[in-house]
Amino acid sequence: MTKSTKPLVSIILLNWNGYEDTLEALESLYQINYPNYNVIVVDNHSTNDSIDKIEQYAKGNIKFETEYTMFHEENKPIELIELTEDELDHTVDYTSTEDQKKLLLIKNFENYGFAKGNNIAIDYTLKYDKPDYVLLLNNDTIVDPDFLINMIDVALTDDNIGIVGPKFYYYEYNQSHNKIWCIGNVVDLKHYPGHHSIMEEDNYDLSKNVIDCDWVSGAGLLIKREAIPEDYLDTSFFFGCEDVDLAVTVRKEGYRIVSVMDSIIWHKVGMSRHKSSTFHTEYNHVKTNLQFIKKYNKNYYKDLPRYIGQIFKLYVRAIINKF
């Protein structure tokens, strides 16, 4: 497998005060079996020492070992290119090769949230790198070495495939006891939060390798360049649903969205949201989901009492389970 035979993929990770997760994610990325990719870390104005830790990691000065990822000293140092938000007006060479791993670090001036933070990197890579695909990847994920090649192989089978997602496992259950977090997702505007995992359906067939779905999680979302909307991710969503909204937009243009069973990612579910207070997290979670439903449900105000009732039931169930 030579580099020239495979599409260029730009991989984007968003970091905000989470360098421990980011470094583990990067280490797994630099061990994948794919020959043509570049990696962008967007730091959303971290207030801790994330920048310094990423710099030290690239030099090979931070060594760690986890159940999922062994530190590979042979691919260090990683060539690090750093650009601030106002320096993104020229091209730089940061495509990794077998002999030299590279990393572009974009330093934002504010915490712009998921959508705008990723949009800054999407805009840069589309303008200067012209990748065939862009991969949005949560920094609290670990990837299987074959995850990307398996995604790409499926994507190339059909020009109408616009978005590809993996099979997500919970990170917490470790590799020897894999437990599925989600496989594909369904948009259902009749019920709050308007979307759910396809795994909740009784008729799900695990024997299929490629599953058509309504959307895939932004924790690991591969999108074809031609399918990317002109305005990228909707920045009015600050706390979730950006990925659902993106998929709805892409599907309206006639593209397929699929999940690939032999593309594996382990996800530390909810790590970014755990950085906020419980009340703040839950309030914004509800607000954002209702925002998404309102955008696409023409009968939103008529159905609002039903949504509120469903939210109330969820809270009661959570309280009961807690005790």
Rank of each mutant, 00 (worst) to 15 (best):
Y30H: 11
G165R: 02
A155S: 11
N15H: 01
K302N: 08
V260H: 05
T288E: 13
N36F: 08
D245K: 04
D123L: 10
D49R: 05
D93H: 08
Y94S: 06
S176D: 12
T66R: 12
M1Q: 08
F239M: 06
L290Y: 06
L304D: 14
I120P: 02
L206S: 13
Y124L: 09
K252D: 14
D140G: 04
V187I: 15
I320R: 09
R273V: 07
K295G: 10
G218D: 00
T125Y: 00
F292L: 12
L26Y: 05
Y300C: 05
N297W: 04
A58I: 02
G162S: 10
I223M: 15
I161S: 03
D123T: 13
V250N: 08
N185D: 13
Y30P: 02
F114G: 00
N178W: 00
V250F: 03
K322W: 12
V260S: 00
G240L: 00
D146C: 07
L304R: 14
I293K: 04
M199N: 14
T2I: 04
I223T: 14
N150M: 06
S28M: 05
G309F: 12
Y133V: 04
D93R: 05
D144T: 09
L136I: 15
I122N: 03
I183P: 01
L103P: 10
I308L: 15
I320W: 09
Y170H: 11
A227H: 07
Y204V: 14
K294N: 12
I265H: 08
T278C: 03
P35N: 04
G309W: 06
T5F: 07
R251F: 03
V187D: 10
K53N: 14
F71N: 05
G194C: 03
I51M: 06
Y255V: 10
I211N: 14
E85L: 13
I161K: 02
F323R: 10
K63P: 02
Y124G: 02
T235D: 06
H45K: 15
H45Y: 14
S50I: 07
K179L: 08
I198M: 14
L233S: 00
N139L: 06
Q100V: 12
S50N: 09
P35D: 05
S236C: 04
Y19F: 13
A247E: 02
P131Q: 02
K302S: 11
Y94C: 09
D262V: 10
T91Y: 15
D140T: 11
I198T: 10
I122K: 08
S272A: 15
N138R: 05
T66S: 15
K76G: 07
G218M: 00
E242D: 08
N139A: 15
E282C: 01
T235G: 00
D159V: 14
T66M: 12
H280E: 12
I161A: 01
I12N: 01
T278M: 10
I265V: 15
N139W: 08
S277D: 14
P229C: 04
Y301E: 09
G240R: 00
E282H: 09
H285C: 09
I78E: 11
M1G: 11
K275E: 09
S272C: 06
K6A: 05
A219V: 15
Q100A: 09
R317M: 07
K313R: 13
M261Y: 09
A318W: 00
Y300G: 07
V216T: 15
D144P: 08
N119M: 00
R256C: 04
H280I: 03
S50E: 02
